[in-house]
Structure formats: C-alpha cells, structure tokens
C-alpha cells in the first residue's frame, strides 16, 4: 500500500491528541501495518510517556535534522508489538528548532519505510502546528463536546482546508452519554452540525484512558474498555473497514449497578 502521513491535531490543548496518536498507532501496528508515531510537540514531549517508551529515548528528531544521528538510530521500537516505532520530540528545544522544509523531508524519508506515519501535533496554530501539518496528506481532528474545543477545531479545520489536506476527519473524544441525555453536553450531531466534516469515531469518556496514560500502556494493546474499543474501531475505519459507530448508551448501561437499576427500573 501507499504510505499515508496523517496528522492528529485539534487546536485546543488537552483534548486527547496524544492519547489518540498512541492508541491509533498501536491499533494499526496490531493490524500488521508498519507504523511510526512522531511527537511533533517539540519542547513539550509527551507521546513517549503515553506509549510507555520514555526510558528508551536516546535521540530525537531534532538530532536527525541536525545530523547528530541517522533516522534509524532515533526511532524507538516498541517491543510489545511488531512494526511500531516512535520518533520522539526534543524536550530541551523549542518549536523554532525545525523548519517546514526539514519537516517535509523527514516525512518523505519516513514514508519510504512505513505504511503509516502518524504525527502528534502540538496545540495552537503557530509554527509548531504548521510544521506538524505540512508534511501530512490527511488529518484527524480531535475535539471534545465543549464549545471552546469545537470552536478551536473549526479554526483548525479551516486552516487544514486552506492547506489542501484531505480527507479531514473528526474524532469526538470524552463523550458522556448521561450528560448528553440531560442536555448538559453537546451531542455528536451538534458538533457535526458546526464542523461539517466526516466523523471517523466517537470516544466515550472512560477512566481507563487516564489509567492507561499513567501506566504507559495504550488501551488498544488489549483493554476491553469502551474507549479501547472505540480507538480500535477508528484504526479499522482508517484502513477502510466499515465498522458501525458504537452505541454509547449501551456502554453506559452496562455493569453491576446498571444491572440493578434495570431490575428495579430506576
């Protein structure tokens, strides 16, 4: 297959870009694809932690750009799954350390080696964003069902469109069906109504995401949580498998207490 370079972006910080990058990388690698996840958040390196590879980082991609090492030396191989690599960011540098041209060259080099190059984009719309996006063909925009995140996602989608990235697809993260039901949270349709791009997945708000981030074990390694299932589904949709959207209300009603509630019709 032709190599695909996909940027995972959002505009707003803290909506789940890094978690999404980690989980999709693992999901795609488990499906047999050669995958590299690039942490483009120079100076605020996180992807290594979320992927549990922080202790194996020796070089970073600034080292490649500056000629301190070869590409292969900077790639951190994940031992838990075949064909998964991380290209970490430099923590001690700033986003000015890389130019858009260097980023394009790097992506072209990685394209030769991998089926998927996933780029974890920094928050914001400045140079760091532009560098992360410039080498990508397509984009996944992550948002949460909050008005501020949606407005930022809208801004980012406009910028991606002007940069001719296609397709641009949307991931809605941290959806809480109970709040949606009570009218306290935007629902999926509300978000799509504003953003008007194709939806590729909805991730339910799930404690397992926090636990997995802290333990450096992306959910798609084998967790049975709803969020894990949602990330796996997105990975499948990325390679063209037609997976229906999860019924988040069904997940909400599972578990012991939900069972009791059902029995007593509470």
């Amino acid at each position: 297959m032709d190599s695909r370079v996909i940027v995972i972006t959002s505009g707003k910080g803290g909506v789940g870009k890094t978690t999404t990058t980690a989980n999709l990388s693992v999901g795609l690698a488990k499906a047999g694809f050669r995958v590299v996840a690039i942490d483009a958040d120079i100076g605020l390196r996180n992807l290594d932690l979320i992927m549990g590879l922080e202790n194996r980082v020796v070089y970073n991609f600034i080292d490649i750009i500056e000629g301190n090492c070869r590409l292969q030396q900077a790639l951190v191989r994940d031992k838990r799954v075949e064909n998964l690599f991380l290209l970490p960011a430099a923590q001690t540098r700033t986003k000015d350390a890389v130019s858009p041209e260097q980023m394009v060259t790097l992506c072209e080099e990685l394209r030769k080696e991998f089926d998927f190059v996933l780029i974890d984009c920094p928050a914001g719309i400045e140079g760091g964003f532009r560098n992360a996006v410039i080498g990508a063909d397509e984009a996944l925009v992550v948002t949460t069902p909050e008005v501020s995140a949606v407005r930022d996602a809208d801004r980012i989608i406009g910028m991606l469109e002007s940069m001719n990235k296609s397709p641009i697809r949307l991931i809605i993260n941290r959806v809480r069906p109970n709040m949606v039901k009570e009218g306290e949270m935007l629902d999926v349709d509300d978000v799509l109504d504003v953003l008007a791009v194709k939806l590729i997945g909805v991730i339910p708000d799930d404690d397992s995401v926090i636990k997995s981030a802290n333990s450096g074990e992306p959910l798609t390694f084998g967790s049975k949580s709803p969020a894990s299932q949602a990330f796996s589904n997105i990975a499948s949709r990325l390679v063209g498998v037609d997976v229906p959207l999860m019924d988040l209300n069904a997940n909400e009603q599972s578990g012991f207490f939900a069972g009791l509630k059902k029995i007593f019709r509470i």
Binding site: I125, R151, D154, R155, A196
Partner: peptide, 11 residues
C-alpha cells in the same frame, strides 16, 4: 460579495 460556503472560526 457572494460566499458560497460556511465561514469557519478565524476566517
């Protein structure tokens, strides 16, 4: 001036 599309945030 006729704009045949939606205006996104920041535009």
């Amino acid at each position: 001036l006729v704009i045949h599309s939606s205006l996104r945030s920041g535009q």
